[in-house]
Computed example of a mutant assay.
Amino acid sequence: MSPQERKRQNLVAIYQALLQLMTQKPLATISITELCQQAGVSRTYFYRNYANFDQIIGAFQEQYMLHYLRRLPNQTQIGLAELMTRYFQVVQQAADTNRLLIKNDKYDIFVQTFQTVFQLLIKQNRISSASGLAIFNEPYYVEFFSGAVVNVAINWMRRGMPEPPAYLGQQIERLATLHPHKPQQ
């Protein structure tokens, strides 16, 4: 097994062990020793790779989202509605895990992961400019947009996900491309 594959395997093991423990008790009461025993990894592994549990969750969420991005159509660019539809599909597929993380106050990790991945897509010019997305280059807009999308996802899960992901993707595109006032200088 390659070092890269071993690292990924250990991340999955420690993340799944953390989730399992979180179903049994609050995150604040889980010890590093307990987590490492549950995951079958050493404490040395934990301390070499992570400073806290949030880093485990963040690393796994980012890896999960990057895996999702690799499954996007091979076309150069993708429309915002389709991209957001895919995001809500991912949220829906992992709804139980997402609810558990939200219950343990990990909202910020979802926002940070979304923001990191979204910035990567902008940097790689993967989002179709036909959606009028010049606003994404405005200061603080990506932070605003990331928080808004994650908040919609969380509330959608709380409501039992009554609408299909495509509906939410279209709504996000519509709201994101409204013509805002020009920034004051």
Rank of each mutant, 00 (worst) to 15 (best):
K103P: 03
Q38F: 00
I172K: 06
Q55D: 06
L178D: 07
P3Y: 09
A153Y: 04
L80R: 07
I109E: 13
I154A: 03
I56Q: 09
L11I: 09
G132W: 06
L178C: 13
R71C: 00
P3A: 08
S2V: 05
N104I: 04
L72M: 14
V90W: 05
F136M: 12
L11A: 04
V150E: 00
Q77W: 02
S2P: 12
A95D: 02
M65C: 13
R71W: 06
I102M: 11
A13G: 04
L21T: 12
T33E: 07
G58E: 07
E173P: 00
I102S: 06
D108H: 02
E173T: 01
Y87M: 10
I78N: 05
A81M: 03
I57V: 15
V41K: 03
F145P: 07
T85M: 01
S31N: 09
P3W: 06
A28Q: 05
R99S: 11
L80F: 02
G79H: 06
R70I: 09
F144Q: 06
E163W: 06
T44N: 13
L80Y: 02
Y50G: 09
R8P: 03
L101H: 01
I109A: 08
Y68Q: 10
R6C: 01
P73L: 01
P26I: 01
L21A: 11
L18N: 13
E143Q: 07
S2D: 07
R86G: 14
C36S: 07
N125Q: 15
Q61S: 13
P165Q: 05
A166K: 05
Q37F: 09
N104G: 08
I14G: 01
L121G: 04
G40W: 13
V142Q: 12
P162T: 03
Y45G: 08
